[in-house]
Computed example of a mutant assay.
Amino acid sequence: MKITSNSIDIEVEDSGPGAVGEERPVVLLIMGLGMQLVAWPAAFVQALIDAGYRVIRHDNRDVGLSHRFEALGKPRLLLQGLRYKLGLKPQAPYSVADMAADSLGVLDALGIEKAHVLGVSMGGMIAQRIALAAPERVLSLSSVMSTSGAKGLAQAHPKVMRVLLSRPKGRDPQTVLKHYVRLFKAIGSPGFPTPEHEMRERILLGVERGYYPVGTLRQMLAIMADITRPAQLRRITAPTLVLHGKADPLLPFVHGEDTAKRVQGARLVGIEGMGHDLPPGVVTHLLAALLPHLKAAQAQAQFSTPVSDQNPLS
C-alpha cells in the first residue's frame, strides 16, 4: 500500500496489528542500498510475526515502488568521491537523515508511537539515524551488516568494489539479472551459499517489480555525505544489537566492531561464514540473537525514557 510520509509516497507492507484488542509490538525493517522491501526473506518476516510482532517493511525513497526523485538527475559519483577523499563533504541531493525521516513518517502514518528498528547495510545507517533523531520512539536498535561510516576502516576487496560500481550492459530483465547474480555471488556468505536458482528467482522478483538504478546512485551519494554520524553514535540510548558477518567482503567485520564500540552498551554478535546477504542459514543465526534482544528491550522499555538528541539530523 502507498502512504504519504515526509511529503512523499512510500510503499509499505504491514503484517497488521493482530486481533481486536491485541496490540502487537512493532518491528520496523529497513532495507539496504538499492534493495526493495521484497528482499526481506519470507522466513525472517514470518518468524517475527510468529514471535508476536507486527512487522512493517517499506521501500526506501528512490527504490522499488516508492517516490523517485527523477528531477534530481544522475549524480556525479566520481566528482563527489574525490571531494570525500580530499576531506570535503560530498554534495548529495538528499541525506541518510532524510531517509530516516521517511521511516519515522511511515510510523506516523500508521499511528505507531514506538517500534523496534532494524536495518541492514544502508538500512542500518538509517536505523542509527532514527535512534539519534527520535530516541523516544525507538524501543530497540538492531544494526545488521552495517557501519558507523567512520573513516579509516577496512574497505571492500577491490574485486567486490568493481562489481558493485559496474552497471549492466543493457536494461532487459535477463541482462540485469545476470549482473546482479554476479554481484550477489561476490558479496554472498561463503559459509551459507545460496543455490543459484533461488538467487535468480529472488533477484528477478525485484527487477520486475521496480528496477531503478539511478535511484541507487543517489542513495549511494547520501551514504558518502553522512560524515557526522560516527561521532554522534555515542548519543544513542536505545538497547542496541550489532550483528555482522565475519566473512563480509563488502563491509568487513571491523565495521561491526567499530559500530558496537561507538554505541554505549551495544552488544556485538559476529557470525562465522556470513557475508553481505541473508541466506537461510544466516537468518537462523540472526534470529537466535535478535529475538532475545527484542524481548529484553520490550521488558526494559517501561523503565526508561530516552532523552532527545539536540541536533539529531545534522
Score class of each variant (00 low, 15 high):
T4N: 11
S7T: 12
D9Y: 11
A19D: 12
A19F: 08
G21W: 00
M31I: 02
G34F: 05
M35T: 11
Q36D: 11
A39R: 03
L48V: 00
I49C: 10
A51N: 08
A51R: 14
Y53F: 15
I56W: 12
V63Y: 01
V63E: 00
L65G: 09
H67W: 08
E70I: 09
A71H: 15
P75T: 14
R83Q: 14
G87P: 04
Q91S: 15
Y94F: 12
A100N: 12
A101L: 14
L104A: 07
G105I: 08
D108R: 09
A109Q: 14
L110N: 05
V120E: 03
M122Q: 09
A134T: 12
A134K: 14
E136Q: 15
S140W: 04
L141G: 10
S142T: 15
S146F: 04
S148M: 08
A150D: 11
A150N: 06
L153Y: 13
P168K: 00
K169H: 10
R171H: 10
D172S: 10
V176M: 03
L177N: 06
V181S: 02
A186G: 01
A186P: 03
G191F: 01
T194F: 06
H197P: 01
R200T: 12
I203M: 09
I203P: 00
G206A: 10
G215F: 05
G215K: 04
G215V: 06
T216M: 13
T216Y: 07
R218F: 02
M220R: 09
L221C: 02
A222F: 01
I227C: 05
T240I: 03
L243I: 15
L243H: 04
H244E: 08
K246W: 09
L250H: 05
F253L: 10
E257T: 09
E257A: 08
A260K: 05
A260P: 02
A260G: 08
V263P: 02
H285T: 06
A296Q: 08
A296S: 09
A296W: 01
A297D: 13
A297S: 15
Q298F: 10
A299N: 14
S304D: 08
T305E: 12
P306M: 03
D309T: 11
D309L: 03
N311R: 12
S314V: 12
